[in-house]
Nucleic acid binder design. Structure first.
Length: 268
DNA sequence: CGAAACTCCTGAGCGC
DNA sequence: TGCGCTCAGGAGTTTC
């Protein structure tokens, strides 16, 4: 499930329970995730987590002499649970802090648990694009990045080498909010429309994070699934349903192996 | 260089 | 109830 808002809500949810705490044990039940779990991770006991930050969809735990880096992939979730919580299928990694532990659950195993020594940037994080919620994302910047690119704007938005954190759901939602066709060649979009798109991305992502804020306590405590949040989408997964703006049916098309949802009359 | 296809993995939902 | 098929929120790698 995790797109940037879910990752950010996870960060906010688990931070109070782990920041300032010392790792007492680590259990790796399944090291074969998207990338092999770094062997160092099993030897992290004794380190104190100084901070938890986020870069793109990576969660970064500052352990002093290095960073523990966690990506949730398509199906991953991180929760803080009592240390005696029974292990379920797909509970691959536990980072224990005394009486509680941070547990990674990931059925599809597209997530990853990595390590980067202090001062070094992990290769996977070395070529990431700009953060969509930073002030780097502006219409002019977007326009400058898109010039010369013939690829469809939706696929361009999902390319993490330009802008990070925009997954399939929010690419669809942002383009709807900006009233821009997902099929428009990225390089042909005017500055004015890029301005609208930059604003739409910011609005969509911050709105989703705010919606997730109400479920923060779901990340600490019980042994259920993280609540994430039930959002009402404008177009995502609404094939055939009436566009919330004009009433014409939402359409679905496959674009670059991913489903694209859009309103053919609102988005041009 | 850019763009598109391919790949990893499990589970849910659907038609029969 | 079971089987086979399709699809799913990511993103690095390969191929053209």
């Amino acid at each position: 499930m995790p797109e940037l808002p879910e990752v950010e809500v996870t960060r906010l949810g688990i931070s109070p329970a782990v920041v300032g705490q010392t790792i007492s044990a680590v259990t790796v039940r399944q090291p074969r995730l998207r990338w092999p779990v770094s062997p160092i991770v099993e030897r992290l006991a004794g380190r104190r987590v100084k901070n938890v930050t986020r870069r793109a969809k990576y969660l970064i735990f500052d352990c002093g002499d290095g960073d523990l880096i966690v990506h949730l992939g398509m199906s991953g979730s991180l929760r803080v649970v009592p240390a005696d919580t029974p292990v379920r299928k797909h509970d691959h990694v536990d980072i224990r802090f005394g009486k509680v532990l941070l547990r990674l659950h990931d059925p599809r195993r597209f997530g990853s648990v990595l390590w980067a020594p202090h001062g070094e940037t992990h290769p996977l994080l070395a070529h990431l694009g700009i953060e969509p919620l930073s002030d780097e994302l502006t219409g002019t910047r977007l326009r400058a990045m898109a010039v010369g690119h013939r690829a469809a704007i939706k696929q361009f938005l999902m390319d993490g080498r330009r802008i990070v954190g925009i997954g399939n759901i929010y690419a669809n939602e942002s383009l709807f909010l900006a009233r821009i066709s997902p099929f428009a060649p990225a390089g042909h979009i005017s500055v004015a429309r890029c301005e609208r798109l930059a604003l739409a991305i910011r609005t969509t992502l911050t709105g989703a994070i705010r919606a997730g804020g109400s479920t923060l306590r779901d990340f600490v405590g019980g042994d259920g699934k993280p609540g994430y949040f039930q959002q009402t989408y404008q177009v995502y997964d609404r094939t055939g349903a009436p566009c919330r703006a004009c009433g014409s049916p939402v359409r679905r098309r496959v674009q670059g192996q991913r489903a694209t949802f859009y309103c053919g009359s609102c988005q041009r």
